[in-house]
Design a protein around this nucleic acid. Structure first.
Lengths: 223, 223
DNA sequence: TATAGATTGTTAATTGTTTCACAAGTATAC
DNA sequence: GTATACTTGTGAAACAATTAACAATCTATA
C-alpha cells in the first residue's frame, strides 16, 4: 500500500490511545493482542484499529494478532514518544499547579521542565519538581533551551496576550486551558482543553436523548 | 427546511463555543454580529456557523446579521443552559480541587454542588464552596438529589471501579479526567478530558510538519 | 421606487472517515 | 498433509461533515 499519502486526523488522535493501552498490557505481561481485544478495551472497532495501523505499515501477524511489545515500540516511534519532549507551563494557579504535579505526561515522554508566573510571591517556589520563574525570564529561557511547546493555564483575560508573547518567543504548539479561542498569526498549533465546554456537551447529549432527537454517532471522546 | 432530522456531532460541539463568544460580545455591548465576524473570532468558517444554526432554525436577518442578545438566548435554550445543572465531582485531589474552584462552569449554568473523596482527612473540608463528603454517602446523595452528571477525577487505578459505581447509582454522563478508557454498560455518555493525549497530539503534529507528511485538516484549529 | 451592497439560508458538490466484504496468511487438530 | 478456525490488511462502498455556489432578503441611498 502507498503509505503516508496522508493520515486522517482522527487516526492520529487515536494512536495515543492505542499506545497507552499497549503499555498497560505490556505491564500486565500480555504478549499478544488481537484487534478484537483492543475493541473491547477501547470502544474502537477492530477494523478501525487495523485501518489506522495500515497507514503506517504492517505490524500484525495474520491468524495471530499483534506483538504488544513490538507494536508499542512502533507506535511510540510514530508519535515521537521515543524522544523526551520538554514543555513549558505558563500560569501556576490552581489548575497550573495541578498540571505540574500531574504524573500522566511522563507516559508519553513529555516533561514540564519550566514553569512561569507573573506573581512574584510564587516565583522561586518549587512545584512538581520545577522551580517557578518570573514571566520576565520567558523569552530568554525559551530561546536558550529551544523550547517549542507550551501549556497555557493563565486566567482567561490574559490568555490572548500571553499566547501572542509565546508565539513571538518561538513557541509552535500551545495546549490552551483558558476558555477562549486564541487568534494567532503564523504556524502555531493550538489545542483547546475546554473543560466547561466538554461538560456542556454532555448536558446537551443527555437532553437530546431525553427528547429523542438523534445525533450522529462517532466520537465521545474528547477535549 | 426539515429541522433536526439529525444534528452532526461536531455542530453540537461548536454550539457552546458560539454561545461563549456571543456572551462576550453582549458584555461588550455589541448588538449585531455577522457570521463573517464570528469567523474571525473563532476560526470557524462563516458558512459553517450559518450551517450549524440552520439545523435549529432561522435566527439571523438577511443583509444584516444576528442579534447578539437573541441568538445567545436561543443557543442557550438549545444547549440547555437556561436551566441550572447540578454536577457532582468525585476525587478531590489536586486536579479535583482545581476543578472545584474553576469558575468557568458557571458560564454554562453548570454547578458542582457535591464533592466526594474516600480520604477521611479531606471529608468535611470545604473547597470551592462545596463541603467534601465521604464516598460512603455517594449513593444516597445521588439518589436523593436525583443527580445525573459526574466529573471523575480519581487516580487512574480507581477510575474504572468508581465509574461503575457511579453508573449503578444512576449517573448518566461522566466527564473523565483519568487517563484510561472506561468500559461501561448501559446508556452512559462518557467524555474524556485527556490532557496528556492532547499534548501528545500536538507533539505529533509538530513532528509531521517538520517531516512534511501531511495530515488532513479539520479540527484542532491550525492557524 | 429602483439600485447597489451586504448578509443569511440552503441545495449540491466535495472532501474526509468509517465500515463492509473478502483475500491472504497463520495455527491447530486430526 | 488437509481441513478448520482465526486474524490481519485493504480496496470499495457507505456514511458524515464541510464547502461552494447562489437564491432570497434586507438596508441604505439616490
Amino acid at each position: 500500500m502507498e503509505r503516508r499519502a496522508y493520515i486522517p486526523q482522527e487516526t492520529a488522535r487515536r494512536l495515543s490511545l492505542y499506545l497507552r493501552m499497549l503499555r498497560r498490557l505490556r505491564q500486565e505481561k500480555v504478549r499478544i493482542v488481537s484487534s478484537d481485544q483492543i475493541r473491547r478495551f477501547l470502544n474502537v472497532s477492530s477494523v478501525q484499529f487495523r485501518k489506522d495501523l495500515s497507514y503506517f505499515g504492517e505490524f500484525g501477524k495474520r491468524g495471530v494478532g499483534y506483538d504488544v511489545e513490538l507494536l508499542a515500540k512502533e507506535i511510540g516511534k510514530i508519535l515521537g514518544t521515543d524522544v523526551l519532549h520538554e514543555i513549558i507551563l505558563v500560569g501556576v494557579g490552581r489548575l497550573g499547579s495541578a498540571l505540574l504535579e500531574y504524573p500522566g505526561f511522563l507516559e508519553f515522554n513529555l516533561k514540564i521542565s519550566e514553569a512561569f508566573d507573573r506573581n512574584t510571591r510564587k516565583v522561586g517556589k518549587v512545584c512538581g519538581g520545577v522551580r517557578i520563574r518570573h514571566m520576565r525570564a520567558l523569552r530568554q529561557v525559551i530561546k536558550k533551551r529551544n523550547l517549542r511547546i507550551a501549556v497555557l493555564s493563565v486566567p482567561v483575560e490574559f490568555a490572548q496576550e500571553v499566547a501572542e508573547e509565546l508565539v513571538s518567543c518561538g513557541i509552535k504548539a500551545i495546549l490552551n486551558f483558558a476558555p477562549v479561542n486564541l487568534v494567532l498569526e503564523g504556524d502555531v498549533f493550538v489545542s483547546n482543553a475546554d473543560m466547561a465546554s466538554e461538560l456542556e456537551s454532555l448536558v446537551y447529549k443527555l437532553k437530546q436523548k431525553n427528547n429523542n432527537y438523534s445525533l450522529t454517532k462517532k466520537r465521545s471522546i474528547v477535549i
